[in-house]
Amino acid sequence: MTRPLVQAQIPVDDRGLAYGDGLFETVLVRDGEPLLWPQHMARLARGCRVLGIPMPASDELDGLPALAGPGLQVLKLVLTRGSGGRGYLPSPSATPRLLWQLSCFKPQAQRWEAGVRVRHCHLRLGSQPLLAGIKHLNRLENVLARSEWNDHEVAEGLLCDSQGNLIEATCMNLFWQRQGRLETPRLDGCGVAGTLRAGLMERLSITEVSTGPEVLMEAEAVWLGNSLQGLWPVERLDTADGVLQRRWTLVDLHRSVQREAHELLGYPTDFGN
C-alpha cells in the first residue's frame, strides 16, 4: 500500500489543534491537475477574511497539486492561525501554519449507479452566520451527527438547524427538484458551502431556499454531492429512527444533474437505469 505524501508537524500550542482556529480544504487531483481549484481557493480566501488569517501566497498553494503525479489523489490543505496567544485571544504576531497531505483516492462509484439510502439525524446544527459557508476546523457537530448510525447501508445523514431548516448532510451538500425547479438549502446561518455546489450553481439554475425537511416528501428527485465523491442520487430516505419515509425510482432526471456534476470532476457521465 502506497504511503500518503504528507507534510505535517503540529506543535501542541497550535491554535488549530487547541481551538479549531483554522480552515481546511480537500481537493480532488487528477494526474496532477486540481479539480474545482478556483472554487476551493475562493472559499479558503473567504474563510481567511472571516477569521482574520492571512491567505497563503498563490505560488505556495498552486504548486502542491502537481506533486500528486499520475492517478486520482486527494490534496488536503490545513491552514491554522499558528502558535501563540494566551487563552482564546490570538497573538497579533502569530505566524499562520500551512499543512498538507496527498493520498490516493477511489470514489464509491457503485453509489453513482445504484443511488443511496440516507436518514435524518437527531442532532441540530447551531446557527452562527459569521462562520456559515466556510470550512473551518471545528466540525464537532458533524462528528456527533455521523456517530448516530453504524449501518453501512445508510450512506449519509441529513441535518437541520435549530430552527428546523434543512441544511446539509454530514459531509455533503443537498439538492432536490420540486415542481420542476432545482433547489438547495440556503446556508446563511450554518453549513458548508461546497465547491461542487458552487460549480453546479454556475452551470445550472439552482434556487437557494429556507425550508424544513418536509420538502423532500414533495421532491421529484434528491441528490447528495461533494467535490470528492461526485453526485449520489437518493433512492431511499429514513427517519432518524430508521423508519422508511420515502423512496425514489432513479430516472433520467437524476442522471441529467449527475452528468453536470461529473463533467466538473472528470467522472463517468454514462449511467444505466
Results as ranks from 00 to 15, higher is better:
256 S>L: 05
83 S>L: 03
222 V>I: 13
230 G>H: 08
238 D>I: 00
7 Q>H: 14
259 R>L: 01
258 Q>K: 03
198 A>K: 12
64 L>N: 06
32 G>W: 01
200 L>A: 09
132 A>I: 07
27 V>L: 13
26 T>Y: 12
68 A>V: 02
249 T>I: 05
242 G>Q: 06
199 G>L: 07
41 M>D: 02
73 Q>V: 01
173 N>D: 14
26 T>W: 12
133 G>I: 08
122 H>I: 09
129 P>V: 11
25 E>A: 09
25 E>H: 08
155 A>K: 04
229 Q>H: 12
215 V>I: 15
141 E>H: 13
56 P>S: 00
266 G>V: 04
44 L>D: 02
126 G>K: 11
115 G>I: 06
257 V>F: 12
260 E>Y: 00
201 M>E: 15
193 A>H: 15
219 A>V: 03
36 L>C: 08
229 Q>K: 10
228 L>S: 09
42 A>K: 12
118 V>K: 13
17 L>E: 00
100 W>Q: 02
160 C>E: 15
220 E>L: 07
139 R>G: 06
36 L>V: 08
110 Q>W: 11
109 A>S: 14
155 A>W: 11
243 V>K: 10
194 G>F: 02
224 L>Y: 07
108 Q>L: 15
77 L>M: 06
113 E>S: 14
231 L>P: 00
99 L>K: 00
53 I>H: 01
14 D>H: 00
189 G>H: 15
34 P>C: 09
253 L>K: 02
78 V>G: 00
163 Q>V: 02
51 L>H: 05
271 F>L: 04
237 L>I: 05
